[in-house]
Simulated scan of single mutants.
Amino acid sequence: MDNTLMIGLSRQMALRQAMDVVANNIANANTAGFKVESLLIDNETAPTAQQDDGPTNLQFVEAWGMGRDFRQGELNVTGRPLDVGIEGQGFFAVTVNGAEQYTRDGRFRLDQTGQLTAHDGAPVLDAASRAPIMLNPSAQATTITDNGTVMQDGVAMGTIGVFEVANLAGLSKQGNGRYVQTDNSDGRNEPQAALSPVMHQGFVEASNVQPIIEMTDMMTIMRSYQSVSKFIEQAEDISRRAVERLGQV
């Protein structure tokens, strides 16, 4: 295939991936704790076919990763006693099939056994023991202090853990607004309990997606895709005319 077409097609493939990312951001604009994502794109150098003149290398477009903006979203008031929002850095920890996952979504509830869980039933982990937090479903009053200590009728039942991740780039998305630490082969990147976390009872962190910016990015991607399509059509037309002229010689 002609080098011009290959370059154009590589750009189109990257733009389609970027469009999927932007569409996912917009779809999660109202998802608690969601962090906006962006496609990371770079140039990939490849040699051309052997020729006597012209460039010796071509620059193709390559999508090599996903960037995430972990800045805090707005804390919205819900008034629910088991909703918790983190102010500052860190993640709540839950356990799924025995593995720890990390999230900013603080929409908690009690299951039938009195265990504090995420909205989908995953147990929330204690800061010190990293074990599930057991509460009394029949307690008259439940209060969560700024450091995450859960008080029921004046008795401390446990402390909701906020864990800090040293290398945010090592987090891998798992769905449901959760991440796992993949860059921990030597144990040095194990998330650690925050020393002075700040939490707010009755609040939930909103997504940090800015819909207007995402819509602007979507329109920019669409225009870029159309431009590349026109570029490919023109290249094909030039090739077709060259073949026709050769046939007339």
Rank of each mutant, 00 (worst) to 15 (best):
A14D: 02
L15Q: 12
L15T: 07
L15R: 09
R16H: 10
D20R: 02
N24W: 09
N24H: 14
A27Y: 01
A27W: 06
A29F: 05
T31H: 09
S38C: 00
L40P: 00
T45L: 15
P47N: 08
A49E: 13
G54Q: 09
T56F: 14
Q59H: 08
F60G: 09
E62S: 14
W64P: 01
G65F: 00
R68I: 07
R71Y: 08
Q72M: 12
Q72K: 07
Q72H: 03
N76V: 14
G79S: 10
G85R: 06
V94E: 03
T95Y: 04
A99L: 14
T103G: 08
R104N: 10
D105C: 03
R107L: 00
F108N: 06
A118Q: 06
H119S: 15
D120F: 09
D120W: 10
G121P: 11
A122P: 04
P123F: 05
V124E: 04
D126A: 01
S129P: 03
R130Y: 06
A131T: 10
N136P: 03
Q140G: 11
T143Q: 13
I144G: 06
T145F: 07
T145Y: 05
N147Y: 02
G148C: 01
V150K: 06
V150A: 05
D153K: 01
D153H: 03
V155W: 02
A156R: 01
A156W: 00
